[in-house]
Simulated assay, not measured.
Amino acid sequence: MDTEHDWITTPVTAGLLRGALDVEHTEHGVLPHRLPARARAQNTDGQLAMAESQPSGVRLAFRSRATVIELDTLPTKRTYAGAPPRPDGVYDLIVDGRPAGQGSVTDGNVVLIDMAAGTSEHRPGRVGTLRFTGLPGSAKDVEIWLPHNETTELIALRTDAPVEPARDPGRRVWLHHGSSISHGSDAASPTGIWPVLAASLGGVELINLGLAGSALLDPFTARTLRDTPADLISVKIGINLVNLDLMRLRAFSPAVHGFLDTIREGHPTTPLLVVSPILCPMHEDTPGPCAPDFSALSTGRLRFVAMGDPAERASGKLTLGVIRDELARIVKQRSAEDPNLHYLDGRDLYGETDSAELPLPDDLHPDAATHHRIGERFAELAFTARGAFAAGDA
């Protein structure tokens, strides 16, 4: 820690955080969660536990005249056996609404995942320090967006001037749920994931429940959406159900109805947008499950392959094409009595032309440039005058 300054240490509390639905006090500090304790208690899946603790869309927000900011954190990083090391998670600094710096914490815990063996090993690490210097000494709004892909315990916030909670921005709150694409997989930084970009363009406050591998119509997730205050809600459904080969069409349709029914218990008239999957060529007509391509992994590349047989659609197996058709049908049926329910075909966000220009690098997740394109498209289709989230419709 730098000793040149008269440091002020400010406790990290829920009042300094946006985008988190719960804060857990740990032996080290505080851990933001994106699912509340009641939902976490009903979950037994390690993938979801990891995903919801990764603070996608979560940011520290405060006002200060500080010219230097230090944040001690304990990240938990993932690495995959046989694959190149993953880059450290990125923290984005935003000052008065504009990008003002980036940084990473190289220390932290490591989870070594062996996808071939289906095992993982936790290796404890040290607390590290993020540091931003040379900031203007005027009163300013400061946001530090936490890495979207690293579980991050917040240990200490130090500044050379007092900190006070950020002012209420007075914007509409957009609550979004989706898969790893909404979570931010393969985006360059936490403000570069498509929901954050769309929220910025739409002038709304984001709560991101994009949960990698875990957009599975879980009832506890529906109850979380039901119980979270919001002016706008969207749910992006489909790809994870195919990836895991989780259910057949017979179960899928009533599960979607039940998911939407639960949300409507808490938000009976809130604009609610159902978004079907973006184009993913390997699963358009081929069911799951999806598996890593271990031959590619051995060469240092992570790719995925579809393991199903297109003929299995006849027995009710799900493909992205089947899911889109069924979601469109369900929304059309329900919207006769629910005029605030809307549908968006995910291929309008990323379709055939986009796939030819910007193919999915691992055949499943978009890269940084594609996140930007999807964010811009969503903002144009949802937040402009004819969109489901047009101003004045909340």
Rank of each mutant, 00 (worst) to 15 (best):
T133C: 01
V163C: 05
P165I: 04
P281F: 12
I207R: 09
E205C: 04
R248D: 10
M307S: 14
E24I: 06
A369F: 04
V275A: 08
D309Y: 09
D231V: 08
V196Q: 13
T269E: 15
V111T: 12
M1W: 07
T9K: 07
P289E: 05
Y343E: 13
T353H: 14
V163D: 07
R18Q: 10
I278V: 15
D325S: 14
A156Y: 00
S276Y: 05
I155H: 10
R324S: 11
E153D: 00
E24M: 01
L232E: 12
N149R: 08
F304D: 10
D45R: 10
P99Y: 00
I323E: 11
I94T: 01
I237P: 08
E4H: 09
E357S: 09
T79Q: 13
R158M: 02
A230L: 04
I181Q: 05
L31D: 07
T129F: 00
P55W: 03
L130V: 02
T129L: 00
E337L: 11
F220L: 06
P254W: 09
V68Y: 00
E326M: 03
P281E: 12
I113M: 05
G202I: 01
L17M: 03
F252Q: 05
S179Y: 04
Y91A: 01
P162C: 06
N243E: 06
D345S: 13
